[in-house]
Design a protein around this nucleic acid. Structure first.
Lengths: 238, 238
DNA sequence: CGGACGTGTTTACGCCGTATGGACCCTGTC
DNA sequence: GACAGGGTCCATACGGCGTAAACACGTCCG
């Protein structure tokens, strides 16, 4: 503020603000990312959206990088607490995996701008696999499967295959939406489409390529995966 | 240059440089990314590594963002030109897919810092799926499979499943290496490891979780996928 | 009442991407 | 040889960025 308000005013402004908190910071950051994309998330803008100077944020977050990690953790932690993904009384292992898969997919669709980060930030340990990337998730996943009869190795195998499946499908699903560019203005001409003149086969197949039922593809792929995992578990411990 | 050299000197320096080119710019940028990570790639540093002022680069690249796209394209184009991934005389469709999978995996391991970009940058059209993300690749992939007896729908199905598989496995493979943080200095203490005390199951299983034979996992997953694709193709056109 | 503590502000530094305009060389034409 | 034109690169500048450091202020505890 070059021409600041009188000191008393500033002090007064400080007094009865509800005050920041790590959760408030993360929520505001998440909203900035959801509308506008990662590029919109700067410490200064985040501060402004919280009615605070940028530097105030550093009380709650070590650095911008740590803020991004915090976002990823928060979103996945919230999912972990979601009753819809918890292992339920009557569930068998396949029901459990379906629940988790649906939950993660919901996260990906709710936060398409964040999901690439969930998928690509370096995990805490090399054996942790995005998107199930908190220790809590790994623990919960492995115990969940073992409580439904999986061997240790079977559970580990399932964890790996399951994580790869989710990343593979969901990353493509959110990137297909082309969420990155941040429209912002009321949009000029719609994207000029692609010039396929050099690619005869694509010209022929473009209509069919464009038809994608992502719901169907995801659940079909998931059932295939479950079958593979089940088969493997049966082989290992008949 | 605050205290510049005499004008004649500067002019002289300009005279007999081989001159930039888009390829030289991209190669230099790729090297910066490979050592040091994306964060190291700034226009100024890239200029310095080419012995040129940052602004000179803008003759060959519209913006930093376009530079990133250029990197992704270049790497994947080079792969497309690699004889080892071309469809060969005696190949059946499965051989072809194995070639491509190996090639993409090689790219991921050669450029682990770039691969997340290959996987996550918004593609040219919504039906283009990373990492096979140039129109040329889509065209080549679809014609390759059709030349080996696949129907149009079968080829499209295979394209989608194959791309998801590659992203899922390779992204995890490169992120597991924890390439992001840019060591730079001779490294202080090795990473302090994770505190597992709150996660009994993880403590028990950590040794087994840490054992990963990524080669085996990749090729096993690939063979599973090929079987699924083949089965689907057989169903559709018996 | 006085100090410690926590919270948010101020200021400042160095880096970033990039718009703009100018300096220089090369080339082609007479 | 002279000279105009265009291509290539440089110099400068602007606004925004992340963040270190010192500081102001309100609160609470003795």
């Amino acid at each position: 503020m070059v021409d600041g308000e009188p000191a008393g005013e500033r002090a007064g402004a400080t007094r009865r603000r509800p005050g920041l908190s790590r959760a408030a910071v993360l929520d505001a950051a998440l909203e900035l990312v959801d509308r506008g994309g990662l590029a919109q998330l700067s410490m200064r803008r985040l501060g402004a959206s919280l009615q605070v100077e940028a530097m105030a944020i550093y009380r709650y977050v070590r650095s911008r990088d740590a803020l991004l990690d915090g976002l990823v953790d928060r979103v996945m932690d919230q999912l972990y607490a979601d009753p819809a993904v918890l292992l339920q009384e009557g569930d068998d292992w396949a029901d459990f995996l379906r629940r988790v898969a649906d939950g993660v997919r919901r996260v990906a669709r709710q936060h398409p701008q964040l999901f690439p980060l969930i998928a690509t930030r370096p995990p805490a340990a090399p054996w942790v696999r995005p998107p199930l990337r908190s220790l809590r998730w790994v623990e919960g996943f492995l115990t969940g499967l073992q409580s439904r009869g999986f061997s240790e190795d079977g559970a580990i195998y399932a964890y790996r295959a399951f994580a790869s499946f989710l990343v593979g499908h969901l990353l493509l699903e959110v990137s297909a939406k082309g969420v990155d560019p941040v429209p912002a203005e009321p949009t000029g001409p719609p994207p000029p489409d692609v010039d396929l003149s050099a690619y005869p086969e694509l010209q022929r197949l473009a209509p069919r390529l464009a038809v994608e039922d992502l719901d169907e593809e995801f659940s079909h792929g998931l059932e295939d995966l479950l079958e593979r995992i089940g088969e493997r578990a049966r082989l290992a411990r008949p």
